[in-house]
Write a protein that binds this DNA or RNA. Structure first.
Length: 433
RNA sequence: GCCCCCAUCGUCUAGCGGCCUAGGACACCGGCCUUUCACGCCGGCAGCACGGGUUCGAAUCCCGUUGGGGGUGCCA
């Protein structure tokens, strides 16, 4: 019995495409679920695709997603002899012929070529609709069809899991396989396309398809993997957000949906939010650290201080890039006052009174979250205001904004001196207008 | 044009002939909680494209229509 073996075969055309990532994932899920092997095969049959940086990008992205492979990667650019031999044999057997320097494979004008697709069922092509296709370019290099057919056969691939956009090349590859003397076919599973809002295949030009652009925005690898698994597949128990180990258990190629799936960033981010909330405070602070660099503040962010305040925004963060903007007032010498927020709460008759009372109270009160809380609540009450209303001027004075992390925890973390200073600054600004 | 594929709420999906007056999630809309926002909780809106069959019975099977999409390179 031959071993179950799958392969992920990307062409290194730049940063890993979301669609490729999903294909890699489904191959990986299927391989791991069946206890089979997964090979990474770089399809760099084209000279400009052999650039090391392009290939590194694939490794980095796959590594980030924690999709692992068995054995060393196979580079098609290093197997040209194999392809040449195959072409020469076809030529010798008159299965192919030279045309303008290139070599074309003879496609029978009658009959059909078909396979039983794991996801789509029986797919049939009339041979008469398939033209004689090029298997070796005039420059001597093998085309995709040749490399693909030779390698899948030579590598003993048992399951070919790839995008639906490759359905139409499958009959050609099947013909080449037969010409190679292979008996039987691997199982083919053509995955549904990932499409955009316009229901068009995600394209590099129109859409944000680079996996790394999501990583750079603070999407967690685990969340990305979890979301991607849901594009074309779903667990029958309706539990969508779950550990990858469980997904491997549940995943079956036969259950993959044949219809195209739209990439929904909102849902991706919702799931990412779930993963962020599931982190410990320490993990979250650590994860946020890279995003804290290169921000407006001059001095470097103190790790201890970050660990202290990061939890305040953890459940308010869907992607890590949203972290720094919510935390900026902790690390700025003076908060950046948002004009609209100022206009909204500082121009009321009560604002100056609240600020003055708060200044007085905060100057002597025990520096404790609960005490601070009660203190401002009482001040508000004395002016006939609920805390929700009374906290607004203080929040704007201290944080510069109308919304943000819990006020009293923030005030506490900032320290008495800085808070008083900010209230005075707000009073000065108020007095000056 | 030709070839191929697809069709369940706005979106992703569960469903694989009776359990479906179609379930979940995201989004959206209410409400509760509440120091803002968020989280959480409760509730709501919303779907089997259409037409024929097959069957005692169809979202589930078959055919057609319509509508989407993919491919059509000496790219992969």
């Amino acid at each position: 019995m031959s071993t179950t073996r799958l392969r992920f075969a990307p062409a290194p055309t730049g940063s890993l495409h979301l669609g490729s990532a999903r294909t890699a994932l489904f191959n990986w899920l299927a391989a791991r679920g069946m206890g089979g092997e997964l090979i990474l095969r770089i399809e760099d049959t084209n000279a400009e695709l052999t650039r090391p940086d392009l290939i590194d990008n694939i490794y980095r992205s796959l590594d980030w997603l924690q999709i692992d492979f068995d054995g060393e990667p196979v580079r098609q650019s290093e197997r040209t002899d194999l392809y040449n031999d195959a072409v020469e044999r076809w030529l010798a057997d008159d299965l192919a012929y030279v045309d303008d320097g290139a070599v074309r494979f003879r496609v029978p004008s009658e009959g059909t070529t078909s396979w039983d697709d794991v996801i789509r069922g029986n797919v049939v092509f009339e041979n008469q609709n398939i033209e004689d296709f090029v298997v070796r370019r005039a420059d001597g290099t093998a085309t995709f069809f040749t490399a693909n057919a030779v390698d899948d056969f030579d590598l003993g691939i048992t399951h070919v899991v790839r995008g639906e956009d490759l359905v139409n090349v499958t009959p050609k590859v099947i013909m080449l396989r037969e010409a190679l003397g292979a008996q039987g076919l691997p199982k083919f599973a053509h995955l549904p396309l990932i499409v955009n809002e316009q229901r068009k295949k995600l394209s590099k030009r129109r859409d944000d398809v680079a996996l790394e652009s999501y990583r750079d925005r603070g999407v967690l690898a685990k969340a990305m993997i979890n979301y991607l698994a849901l594009l074309g597949w779903g667990p029958s128990d309706d539990i969508e957000v779950r550990p990858i180990e469980e997904i491997i258990q549940l995943f079956r190629l036969e259950d993959v949906n044949p219809s195209a799936a739209m990439f929904d960033v909102k849902k991706l981010e919702a799931i990412n939010g779930d993963y962020i909330r599931a982190m410990t405070h320490e993990e979250f602070a650590d994860a946020l650290t890279p995003w804290m660099k290169d921000q407006a503040w001059n001095s470097a962010v103190d790790p201890d201080q970050l660990t202290q305040v990061a939890p305040l925004v953890q459940e308010r963060t869907r992607v890590l890039a949203e972290g720094p903007p919510q935390l900026d007032f902790f690390f700025l010498d003076a908060p950046e006052i948002e004009e609209s927020a100022w206009e909204k709460v500082m121009t009321t008759a009560e604002a100056p009174l609240i600020l003055e009372s708060a200044k007085t109270a905060f100057a002597t009160v025990d520096w404790d979250v609960a005490v601070l809380h009660e203190s401002l609540r009482a001040i508000g009450e004395s002016h006939g205001m609920k805390l929700g209303k009374a906290q607004a001027p203080v929040r704007v004075a201290v944080t510069g904004r109308l919304v943000g992390p819990p006020l009293f925890e923030s005030i506490h973390a900032l320290g008495r001196e800085a808070v008083l200073e900010r209230i005075v600054q707000a009073q000065n600004k108020l007095g000056g207008t």
